[in-house]
Design a protein around this nucleic acid. Structure first.
Lengths: 254, 254
DNA sequence: TTCGTCGGTTCACTGGATGAACCGTTGGTT
DNA sequence: AACCAACGGTTCATCCAGTGAACCGACGAA
């Protein structure tokens, strides 16, 4: 691996992100690098405007907005977002429920956009949330379109339960993935958050490769089984439109 | 400045963010560093999962979602967001228009959250958008609460016009800031985007320091002058609540 | 008073970062 | 078809920038 100081710096940055507000010794332990080195990295990152000392607690380090600003222009983020927002907007207006746009990130689904329901009772996920794939409709939808090797790898890893309803049994999850493929959409009943149900559909990018997913979410009292099919099909139609825009089915190669 | 390889790496990262999909020579020129060095940085960042070669165009580099995921847990982001989302949600339901939450980033306002209107005609800003301060209601609201030195510095810089309605005259902008202070809210009529009007109010953090701002936005056909006061006062009430939660007026220090 | 841990500093050593010069390829021009 | 400029990417001798063990003063608990 090259440029190890850069590697260290980025690892420090990620450690800050995960532990903020984070202390020096804490970070040093986390990254397994001497305090002096960690501090040097923090100072450098601070000069660049990516981290700062917390005003509330001296000696504690936090990420700045600038990091967010730079990273928001994320590539697949933008490309997918540009293709997705139009159809997604229509889907939201049709269903009147909250819709999410998510892309994969290291075993999690990252929520990159959200269009809100007008209802007072709202499912709420802050932008940038990372959801475990097995515990979210977006994740299961993504897995249903991902290649077998990825699914095997994911299911082999540790699977955490977020609510009593979260399914963590690999065998059961595999069945659910098969069902999702057959049905065209995934269903998550309170597996992510108690009282929330959601319906997910995968998005395909060039070459038909899984690129992300969309979902319709709301309180379980409104998203009842009788509506699954209607919402599932609406979302599937929207997803098809987006996938097409992403070039999933273009024969002309890339 | 210390750890120059880290500095170079981050500069390369930011250059990728600004120019993606970006080529090697292009980045080398942008950052003013030899191609070999830039390439080494790109490879290191790629190993860490922050950038990747574009699938569409070989040799072009793009940011990954992972960068976004790490950075979304941005500090002031989270703190302000946690304090703001409740009151902001109420404001959105009250006004039925789109509301935004923005924080400053190097002379721009960074949109970190959005709650949508149920109306079919929607003002739309993707999350992570950066708006020039002088061209947005959030920016003018922020400036109205920022310290004089910052305002002077900002107005001294180049001020770009985004629409024919954008005000770029420093003298006029200064008057608008004074008006905003007196009134309690800023008004932006089509200065950011033709057909969009918005009302902004600053948020204060600990010590009464400007920390960000909120806004109500919509089509100019709906956000008419007759509604300015109502919306402005509603937003000001919400902002007060958020600022209080952020500890803007606590006497107990920190 | 003692102890452990905190954030932060120092400095001699050396291995990792640097960048000029290079290669093969591509695409436009004549 | 010959040319050329610009592309992405590679090589390697040079040397300086990054490293980390040992250290400091401050603080809180026992």
């Amino acid at each position: 691996m090259s440029t190890q100081s850069v590697v260290t710096a980025i690892r420090v940055l990620e450690a800050v992100s995960d532990n903020q507000p984070a202390g020096l010794s804490e970070l040093s332990r986390e990254v397994d690098v001497p305090k002096a080195t960690v501090l040097r990295m923090l100072r450098t990152l601070a000069e660049l405007g990516w981290v700062a000392q917390s005003e509330a607690q001296a000696g504690k380090w936090v990420l700045t907005n600038h990091a967010f600003a730079v990273a928001s222009r994320g590539s697949s983020g933008s490309v997918i977002r540009d293709a997705a927002m139009g159809p997604l907007n229509a889907l939201q207006l049709d269903t009147t429920e909250t819709v999410h746009l998510a892309v994969p990130d290291r075993g999690y689904m990252l929520i990159i956009e959200r269009l809100d329901t007008p209802h007072v009772l709202r499912a709420f996920l802050p932008l940038g949330s990372r959801l475990p794939m097995h515990a979210s409709s977006t994740g299961m939808a993504y897995l249903s379109a991902a290649d077998e090797a990825f699914v095997d790898g994911y299911l082999a890893g540790p699977l955490e339960a977020l609510t009593p309803q979260t399914v963590v049994d690999p065998v059961q999850l595999r069945t659910m993935i098969v069902d999702t493929r057959a049905r065209g959409y995934s269903i998550n009943e309170q597996g992510l958050s108690t009282g929330i149900t959601s319906i997910g559909v995968p998005l395909l990018g060039p070459g038909g490769v899984a690129a992300g997913s969309i979902s319709i979410s709301g309180p379980s009292s409104r998203i009842v089984p009788a509506k699954y099919q209607e919402y599932g099909e609406a979302a599937a139609g929207t997803a098809l439109e987006i996938s097409r825009a992403l070039g999933a089915f273009s024969t002309k190669g890339y």
